[in-house]
């Protein structure tokens, strides 16, 4: 599968949030009015104006404290459930060169909630008028030979970006190294997404949507039969 990919090595992330700010700067997104809610994580969640968010979690594993950082963003799935659900290339489409999954202003005209519910990583966020937004892979930068803003700014090497094959090699090589110290280390959904995370602990400790549920991609593949599945999705959402 050609195109581009990210490799995000959480073992190197210091949670400086440089990626968050670089994202806002490149996309000229406004700051949200926030308060400290008893955590370093801010804003509280992704939003229509926040595409990139470092999630903070404290947990004790085998008697040792772990402060886990997860720089969350759209995974740019190889077979994006959002795109299939929307089924409207004017609203959601993929750049054939980079593989970036892109939302347009027309996304306000589709069934927004359905698209949100289809995402196994809980990424898309809607404006009040229903327009959807999320990470766009800095596709404008990438198509002009630049790195995504978040990758460009990362001072530790946690954020990496390049041709997909190159990133997969880097990810696997790095996993081998990290596993020597962190035997539970793994790559998250590397065969399904273009944003491949390396984590050292159980992914659920980082974020409940760190990995897609087992059935997510099976479901998404079946979205081809979406006339059959749509009522089911709605039903699930209704629960």
């Amino acid at each position: 599968m050609p195109g581009k990919s990210f490799f995000i090595d959480t073992s190197l992330c210091t949670a400086c949030k440089g990626c968050q700010v670089a994202c806002k700067q490149w996309h000229d997104l406004p700051a949200e009015k926030t308060v400290n809610r008893g955590t370093y994580q801010n804003p509280a969640d992704l939003s229509f104006v926040t595409y990139k968010l470092v999630r903070f979690n404290e947990t004790v594993v085998d008697g040792k404290l772990k402060w886990l950082f997860f720089s969350d963003q759209c995974r740019h799935c190889l077979e994006p459930p959002c795109e299939m659900t929307a089924d409207d290339p004017g609203a959601i489409f993929r750049d054939p060169v980079t593989g970036a999954v892109l939302f347009t202003a027309n996304s306000k005209d589709i069934d927004t909630q359905e698209v949100i519910d289809a995402c196994p990583y809980n990424i898309p966020r809607a404006a009040r008028d229903g327009t959807l937004a999320k990470c766009d892979m800095c596709n404008d930068r990438v198509r002009n030979g630049l790195l995504p803003a978040c990758v460009k700014t990362c001072p530790t090497g946690a954020m990496n970006f390049g041709d997909r094959e190159e990133m997969l090699v880097m990810a696997r090589r790095r996993l081998d190294t990290v596993k020597k110290i962190h035997p539970k280390a793994k790559l998250l959904d590397p065969d399904d997404v273009r944003v491949i995370y390396l984590v050292t602990e159980d992914p659920m400790l980082y974020h409940s949507f760190a990995v897609a549920s087992n059935s997510a991609f099976d479901v998404s593949r079946k979205v081809a039969l979406k006339t059959l599945l749509r009522p089911l999705t709605r039903l699930t959402a209704g629960l």
């Binding site: 700010v21 700051a31 926030t34 308060v35 400290n36 801010n42 804003p43």
Partner: peptide, 10 residues
């Protein structure tokens, strides 16, 4: 700087 105050407001 609003983007930085957003991260650590208080």
């Amino acid at each position: 700087q609003p983007w930085l105050l957003e991260l650590q407001p208080q």
